[in-house]
């Protein structure tokens, strides 16, 4: 008997993604949707999408959604979760949104141990606005606002979000994963699932930083971008679980 072993998750609508060819946002969307399906919480979930490339994510997740102003998704999620504590709430944010304009919101949501889950997509560049330097742009990386490469004297250093947030007592689960090959895609899904489970069991704030590619603004074909991520981003942004609740270790 032929059985479907891989199909579109129900927590995704049928709307085609607007992302550029090879952009790994689509993989991460799918993983979040698969986790929602596996946990059986689609009917009880509220998502918050950011400003940036994933601004239209409310069209793609087949759950109730909010579109938040730039960087403020964690504040919006706080308002939702404090109003409806038995719902599953997640934010989906890029690096400009979370690690630049929205640093205050994410830090304090984590510090308060707000019981929601944040999916943080780090592709080291501003995509939607035209490939400018992001807070996570690597030293030496060329962007439209660092045409000779990011110079630490002029533009400082990249922000390591997972490491920073894991220092907060309120952060219950913090992990950094990547989606540059199928093995890591599987690991990323496990981390995302754990981050939802930590919320559902009431253990507190959970964040998964997902290293992602931007072939368009990095100026390379999609497969080359995956290789660039592996060779350049992972050494600076080490993968792993930075924090997890003691009882689930």
């Amino acid at each position: 008997m032929m059985k479907k072993v891989f199909t579109r998750p129900k927590a995704l609508t049928d709307k085609p993604f607007h992302y550029c060819p090879g952009c790994t946002h689509g993989i991460i969307h799918r993983l979040v949707a698969e986790v929602i399906d596996e946990l059986g919480v689609a009917d009880n979930t509220v998502g918050v999408c950011p400003v940036g490339c994933s601004v239209f994510a409310y069209n793609y997740f087949n759950v109730d959604m909010f579109q938040a102003s730039h960087g403020r998704a964690p504040a919006v999620a706080t308002g939702i979760k404090r109003s409806l504590p038995d719902r599953v709430v997640f934010t989906y944010q890029g690096d400009g949104d979370l690690a630049s304009i929205g640093t205050a919101e994410i830090i304090h949501a984590a510090a308060r141990s707000e019981k929601f889950t944040t999916i943080f997509v780090n592709n080291a560049v501003y995509g939607m606005t035209g490939g400018q330097m992001a807070p996570t742009t690597l030293l030496g990386q060329k962007t439209t606002t660092t045409p000779k490469g990011r110079d630490k004297e002029q533009a400082g250093f990249p922000v390591k979000v997972a490491e920073m947030l894991s220092t907060l007592d309120g952060a219950a689960y913090v992990a950094r994963v990547s989606v540059h090959n199928p093995t890591h895609v599987n690991k990323a899904k496990k981390a995302i699932k754990k981050a939802f489970e930590v919320q559902i069991s009431g253990q507190g704030f959970a964040l998964v930083e997902v290293l992602s590619t931007c072939p368009t603004n990095w100026g390379m074909p999609p497969n080359e971008a995956l290789k660039w991520l592996e060779e350049n981003m992972i050494p600076y942004y080490p993968l792993g679980i930075y924090k997890e609740p003691a009882e689930v270790k």
Binding site: M1, M2, K3, K4, V5, F6, T7, R8, L12, P16, F17, Y19, G22, C23, T24, H25, G26, I27, R30, N181, P182, V185, N186
Partner: peptide, 15 residues
């Protein structure tokens, strides 16, 4: 299918 960013692939297998 795991790597497809546009979720265009379905896989069936004999079980």
């Amino acid at each position: 299918a795991r790597m497809c960013p546009d979720v265009v692939i379905e896989v069936e297998r004999e079980v």
